[in-house]
Write a protein that binds this DNA or RNA. Structure first.
Lengths: 335, 335
DNA sequence: TAAAATTTCGTAAACGTTTACGAAAACATT
DNA sequence: AATGTTTTCGTAAACGTTTACGAAATTTTA
């Protein structure tokens, strides 16, 4: 592996000059610049990143911690992050926490002494522990798809409003007994998707003078099977629901199957609305009405903020709420 | 950010000693080891990775180039890779090529001078160009989920045999007019999934004395919509197929919808079999019969080989063919 | 042509580690 | 107490860059 010194020797210049041409700095004549480039190419020289990082104190690498890369919601966010990082010359270290809190913490530890320039984080619940770990090391962090009350920039959507909109749509269609499938709630704070969406659900119901019925609320696990089971539970309850709102498309997909397996039809007998608008939701039968999140953009904006933070640029806003949108397909019907 | 020197000074030892304790080397007494650790903790010291990488000539980072992270097939492979890398102390730089050849090449370029210790690669077609790029820089590479005739280790499955098995299953059920939905074929060599599976398809048909009919073969794009369109084309053809084999579950999913939209029923009127066995295939209606690939294991084994390569350990075999398995659910019926 | 101004370049220190080598310290042996 | 062994440690060079500073070369100006 040729070094800067090899190039310098062959080109009859000092290493400083070689460095200058490879950093597009001034103070080098066109002739010598060309000669250096030529020799470098000949030798197959490329600057060593570790050496650069060492002296600059920056690696050009950011860490990315996500709960589960195989979840389409996250993988779309990851796409957004990766794309905008690449464009700005950063690389991304992927850390898949596998939905395990220990792995999350383990990864934070690893990232700290890998000297990543910053990290983008997504976790189900951003805790004191997380906050501590990052701030003590003074490493910039931004949350993608998750809000927090700590002093950490984030970009997400208004989950309360999003659920509120979905339920209001159902209410406008005449539905009165509306089921809800939420995600794991145990030990979660108010900054978590599921509880925010639950709040929106209750708010809409309340404003419409509808009472919230515990039998119509069930917990899923953000997987299709969990959605299926939760839906069955709701459908078999005393009060027959005419609609079900699942807090993720994957769970809504499970709910769709549950509806059919219970001998009912969607949307004729029960309407279903999902959340996220992943690719899949377009091709279910019936196509799923769902509230769309701008996943790619969430990732993209989060990455932009982080890189601005790293470069010491001032950032306009630390808390960014992106727009959601109810996309209406064929899984809901007037009742 | 405290350096090794800071802790050396505070602990009244030399930097060599500090280095020794942080590398678990001998030649340091228990007392001083403890003292160093204590001071280090107090200061919040952690060794600088760039400095380490510089002197060791290794970064402990591997590059991972995949066509599309949001494709569940790939994301499962990625999970396997990431998991086993983490266990062995390596980190993964994620490079999402977005199905674009230019991005692939761009990333190879980036990875080269980032000094990754090695790269795991997946592309639709491993070309001379790719081979060149890696070998010129002498950076170890292994292919995950893709074979090649170049001298590069890979781990994949026997695609010919897998398709062959699927078709034979259909034949054993009495099917004679079997459609095939393959992926993009343009300019592809024989080492590509789709063409291998096409070969298996033809082989099975041939051995059963069935003729292959061009009207029954259509091209998809590895997405649900592409599968849908291809299936429609096949179903509307002159010869009415009684079964369709889609070369990916996602496309099979589209085919399932096409069947229904054509006023037919699966499996009563037409059987469908997919490929991959992604999570989704279990929860379609009907649940999809499919040939399962060990995605996670493909990634995991590939990562292991790469890390062995990096560490100069001898590897038993360079070409690893993992087992596939036909998993039978409810999308096929005897005819 | 000489001085001034400008452009181009080289020297050397710094970044934070690891490690070969040898010195000092501690312990064991007579 | 003197010597030999073993354990523990420090010195200094190396890894491959970037960059401040000043020197040399070139161009401009008078």
């Amino acid at each position: 592996m040729p070094t800067i010194e090899d190039v310098a020797r062959l080109a009859n210049v000092s290493i400083a000059t070689v460095s200058r041409v490879f950093n597009n700095k001034p103070d080098v004549s066109p002739k010598t610049r060309e000669r250096v480039l030529e020799i470098a190419k000949e030798l197959g020289y490329e600057p060593s990143m570790p050496a650069r990082s060492l002296i600059k104190g920056k690696t050009g690498i950011i860490g990315l911690i996500v709960p589960d890369i195989s979840n389409p919601y996250y993988s779309e966010i990851v796409r957004g992050i990766e794309d905008t990082c690449r464009i700005r010359g950063y690389n991304v270290i992927l850390c898949n926490a596998d939905n395990k809190r220990e792995k999350e913490l383990e990864y934070i530890d690893i990232l700290k002494n890998r000297w990543v320039d910053g990290v983008i984080f997504h976790c189900d619940y951003f805790s004191e522990e997380h906050y501590e770990a990052f701030t003590r090391k003074k490493i910039p962090v931004v949350l993608a798809g998750r809000a927090t009350s700590y002093d950490v920039p984030y970009v997400t959507i208004d989950n309360v409003k999003a659920a509120y909109d979905a339920i209001n749509y159902l209410i406008s269609l005449g539905h009165k007994r509306i089921g809800l499938i939420h995600g794991p709630l145990e030990g979660m704070k108010e900054t978590v998707d599921s509880v925010e969406r639950l709040i929106g659900y209750k708010k809409a119901l309340g404003e419409a003078g509808l009472e919230v019925c515990d039998e119509l609320i069930a917990e899923g696990d953000f997987k299709a099977k969990g959605g299926y089971k939760a839906a069955v539970k709701i459908l078999k309850a005393g009060v027959k629901p005419t609609a079900i709102f699942a807090v993720s498309d994957i769970m809504a997909f499970g709910a769709l199957n549950a509806v059919f397996d219970c001998g009912l039809k969607c949307p004729e007998d029960v309407s279903v609305v999902g959340f996220d608008n992943i690719d899949l939701s377009e091709i279910t039968r019936p196509p799923l009405t769902t509230v769309a999140q701008p996943m790619y953009e969430i990732g993209s904006v989060a990455a932009d903020i982080l890189m601005n933070l790293i470069n010491g640029e001032s950032i306009e806003r630390k808390r960014i709420i992106l727009d959601h949108k109810l996309v209406i397909r064929n899984s809901c019907k007037r009742v």
